[in-house]
């Protein structure tokens, strides 16, 4: 097993508001190993993007990390000064955002933006940086890279722009790439190409990827492991095939059943009643308990801790507590 690259331990992110403090991420722990693609899924408001933002230190104030630790290759990074964090961001952690149009500056050519990023992080001459930039564009599959590098973002189609954004994220050879909904704004045929690019590049360079998306199909095809978030908490984490084919947490079971597939026809989709609670009204105990079919007394009173399950999985559900799985120490129930 490859060594752990990123380790998130008991992360808590809070947003103070006039009506009290909202806990957007509540005690979330997970690891990403080198060369691994970790998918992070959940519905809107589950905390997927905030988890990504917390790791690269880009949480919008007044939100802040109020608990837990984040370690990158053994070194703690959640408490660094903005200046030191800035050196890690882009250099060791690359970022790909959802909308390729807003993540590129429309007033600068692709060459300007790539060369600036490369020279910020690596000590190279202008000429060497340009050669490297062309090489990067070539790798992400932009045809005639040497000619197109002097074009502006608006000369590119959506899929090509997203390739440029991926090239930017990879400019300084980061260990970890956080991709936040990288294919959501794209058409299916282009989406498939971008998934391929992300996968290949990470495999070639041994970089780890944290892939945040609401599209389970993308996760199924791309990720090695998948973490399912619900109302800011980790519901389940495990190898992608197991979680999709044999989900254990009742929320994951419902989520998978509610997705129509193109390979077979189901007369009716499973539906989870209700919707995810707002952060202002998370129920006591397990956050999913009002929508859960298998709810029992303990779920309403006590928050489930992530339980280790066979096959390198963790499930935060009391259903599995009776089976004698060892509960992870140090995780306190919140109520």
């Amino acid at each position: 097993m490859a060594e752990t690259l990123l380790s998130v331990r008991n992360l808590v992110v809070e947003f103070p508001t006039r009506r009290g403090t909202l806990r957007a991420i509540d005690d979330v722990s997970f690891d990403i190993r080198r060369g691994e693609v970790l998918g992070v899924v959940g519905e809107s408001g589950a905390g997927k993007s905030i988890t990504g933002a917390a790791i690269i230190g880009l949480i919008e104030p007044p939100g802040r990390i109020t608990g837990g630790e984040i370690h990158l290759a053994g070194a703690r990074i959640d408490n660094l000064s903005p200046e030191r964090m800035r050196r890690i961001r882009g250099k060791r952690i690359g970022m790909v955002f959802q909308d390729p149009l807003t993540s590129l500056n429309p007033l600068y050519t692709i060459a300007d933006q790539l060369i600036e990023t490369i020279r910020t992080h690596i000590d190279l001459s202008e000429k060497a940086a340009r050669a490297r930039a062309i090489g990067l564009l070539d790798q992400v599959g932009i045809p005639a890279a040497a000619r197109r590098i002097d074009d502006y973002p608006h000369h590119f189609s959506g899929g090509m722009r997203q390739r440029v954004v991926i090239a930017l994220a990879l400019a300084a050879e980061p260990d970890l790439v956080i991709a936040d909904e990288p294919t959501t704004a794209l058409d299916v045929s282009v989406q498939a190409q971008i998934i391929d690019v992300l996968k290949d590049i990470c495999a070639d360079r041994g970089a780890a990827v944290m892939l945040i998306t609401h599209d389970m199909g993308v996760i199924a095809e791309t990720a090695d492991r998948v973490a399912v978030l619900y109302a800011g908490r980790l519901a389940e984490i495990g190898p992608v095939g197991d979680v999709i084919k044999a989900a254990e947490h009742p929320y994951t079971v419902g989520l998978m059943g509610s997705i129509p597939t193109i390979t077979h026809e189901a007369p009716r989709l499973t539906q989870i009643p209700g919707s995810m609670p707002r952060l202002t009204s998370i129920p006591p105990g397990c956050a999913f308990n009002p929508r859960c079919e298998k709810v029992f007394a303990r779920c309403r009173a006590e928050r489930p801790v992530p339980l280790r399950r066979p096959g390198n999985r963790e499930v935060a559900c009391w259903l599995f507590a009776e089976e004698g799985a060892d509960e992870r120490p140090g995780v306190q129930a919140h109520g």
């Binding site: 299916v188 045929s189 989406q191 498939a192 998934i195 599209d215 389970m216 199909g217 993308v218 199924a220 095809e221 791309t222 992608v240 095939g241 999709i244 084919k245 998978m256 997705i259 597939t261 193109i262 390979t263 077979h264």
Partner: peptide, 13 residues
């Protein structure tokens, strides 16, 4: 081509 491109749950791996 469109059908080939759709990421699907069944496509895992």
């Amino acid at each position: 081509m469109l059908l080939d491109a759709v990421p699907d749950l069944e496509m895992a791996g």
